[in-house]
Design a protein around this nucleic acid. Structure first.
Length: 472
RNA sequence: GGCGUCGUAGCCAAGCGGUAAGGCAGAGGUCUGCAAAACCUUUAUUCACCGGUUCGAUUCCGGUCGACGCCUCCA
């Protein structure tokens, strides 16, 4: 498998770059920068959730043991501001939105991380790291009780974002209130202000800076060196740059072999922002189009490319998913209705599709191509499947179904649970009545029953081999 | 100003040196009691534009135009 590494700005062979064959610890360690939990997650937040979930699923499919950590940033200005605004506690806000996050994540079929650390529960580890950084002369404390990272002390500073310190300094802004040595220095620890959460530290009461949170949480649960660090492209600078400086300045070893950055979700080709009034939460979009349409939309293009959110794009996703579901239903119908072990094979070359799918995924998770492979398989199968006179080998049909399910579960699509239909008896009676009406050519009545069934969440398709009934 | 991404059919989107995948939408048709699903036909002599390299470029190089992102604790 090859992955594009933002650090080297090239596609690299995964196993070679992490030195997989030579190391004793075979667990793949992944850290994903998680949301700041001050509000419902927005549509942009769902991108990294979905695409790195695909990465995780695919690595597991390939047989790797994966440890996946995604944090919750629950110590942050935005949370504090919201708490003040609503006149409630900081942790009431963060706990509420962690719960809401989990609802959205489940809706999007994003597997829970192996560990979901919270910044507020990793304070001691942050203090430990800051202490080491000060000892290593990479950080300094000011009289006011703040601690800053000394960017000039870290020679590789700027390497990830491909910028030199002098470039950065011209663009950097200095807050006159800050006692920084250099414009590019950033806070590791901030002295507490009134009405803010605080913790005790060697530098007095205060709270951690944003960047150190991720360094500490990553280190605590994954160790000094991890394999893949993921996040949105906007985090590359300064957040990820600072993480590298902190972590490597502290441990002296490589922080992460790979850096993966997902592209943005734009609204009308423009970044979404509250001021432009083009801000959408995942929740409200899911209510309109369903979570699965969001999930599909997220993987319809390459994870690094920007995606433009439009109503039309969502409708297209819904239609595409429907085609996949239809195939699944039709395949199941064939399996259940063409019981003949000795029939002909529906597809001879299942392995070819499998191979093409893997090739696509191995190429830096080309989910777009992977979907195209699935649709090609569907096309070939549908052509033969529409001939109701042919008896197909059930074994072959099942093999195709397994392969199809394998593909869709790697991509994390087609997970919609069948409706738990409570009134099964009523439905059975309606189906029988409809059959009877059709035998007697009472079309009006049979159509009426079909509508009724549809409203109950049951679709019927008449075929020469009987009626294909499925719940939606 | 520095760093970076992108411009492929009505829409979405792969391909990135050998002559344009896939999905959605549209039109016509087949099948069906009607539907639904599915299938068939149809939709880019062309990949923003201009040069260059090459036997050959959407794909590489240079330039132009256009859109966008980061450098403001925003995924």
């Amino acid at each position: 498998m090859k992955l594009y590494n933002s650090f080297s700005r090239t596609k690299e062979d995964f196993e070679s770059s992490i030195n997989f064959s030579a190391r004793s610890d075979k667990t793949i360690k992944i850290y994903v920068c998680g949301p700041t939990v001050y509000d419902y997650i927005h549509i942009g937040n769902t991108r990294p959730m979905c695409v790195f979930d695909v990465l995780r699923r695919y690595l597991k499919y390939l047989g790797y043991n994966v440890k996946y950590v995604q944090n919750f940033t629950d110590v942050d200005d935005k949370i504090i501001n919201r708490a003040h605004k609503e006149n409630t506690g900081f942790f009431d806000i963060s706990e509420k939105f962690i719960k809401e996050y989990k609802i959205d994540a489940a809706g999007l079929n994003v597997m829970p991380a192996d560990v979901h650390p919270k910044a507020s529960e990793t304070i001691q580890e942050m203090i430990d790291m800051i202490n080491i950084l000060i000892k290593n002369k990479h950080a300094y404390a000011t009289e006011s009780g703040d601690v800053y990272f000394d960017t000039l002390s870290f020679e590789n500073y700027g390497k990830l974002s491909n910028q030199t310190l002098s470039d950065l300094q011209t663009g950097a802004r200095i807050d006159p209130n800050e006692a920084k040595k250099n414009a590019t220095d950033f806070a590791l620890w901030k002295a507490s202000k009134p009405d803010e959460p605080f913790w005790d530290s060697p530098w007095g009461l205060g709270r951690p800076g944003w960047h150190i949170e991720c360094s500490a949480m990553s280190r605590k649960f994954l160790g000094d060196t991890i394999d893949i660090h993921c996040g949105g492209q906007d985090l590359m600078f300064p957040h990820h740059e600072n993480e590298i400086a902190q972590s490597e300045g502290c441990t002296g070893v490589k922080f992460s072999y790979f850096w993966l950055h997902n592209g943005y979700i734009n609204i009308n080709d423009t970044k979404m922002s509250k001021s432009l009034n083009n801000f959408f939460t995942a929740r409200e979009i899911s209510e309109k189009y369903g979570y699965e349409a969001i999930r599909y939309f997220m993987i319809s293009g390459h994870y690094k490319s920007p995606l433009n959110y439009t109503e039309r794009a969502m409708q297209q996703s819904i239609s595409s998913i429907q085609r996949l579901y239809n195939f699944k239903e039709n395949l199941n119908f064939a399996i259940n209705n063409k019981i003949s072990e000795s029939g002909v094979n529906l597809l001879e070359n299942i392995n070819k599709y499998k191979q093409d799918f893997l090739t696509a995924m191995n190429d830096d998770l080309n989910t777009s191509d992977a979907l195209a492979v699935i649709f090609s398989m569907i096309k070939e199968a549908n052509i033969k499947l529409s001939d109701f006179d042919v008896k197909f080998s059930v074994k072959n049909l099942e093999k195709i179904a397994n392969c199809f399910n394998e593909f869709t579960s790697i991509l994390g699509i087609l997970y919609k649970n069948e409706n738990n239909i409570k009134n099964q008896e009523e439905i059975d009676i309606l189906l029988k009545d409809r059959d009877l009406a059709r035998i007697n050519k009472k079309w009006e009545k049979s159509d009426e029953i079909r509508d009724k069934l549809y409203k109950l969440g049951v679709a019927v398709k008449d075929t020469p081999n009987g009626t294909n009934v499925f719940k939606f």
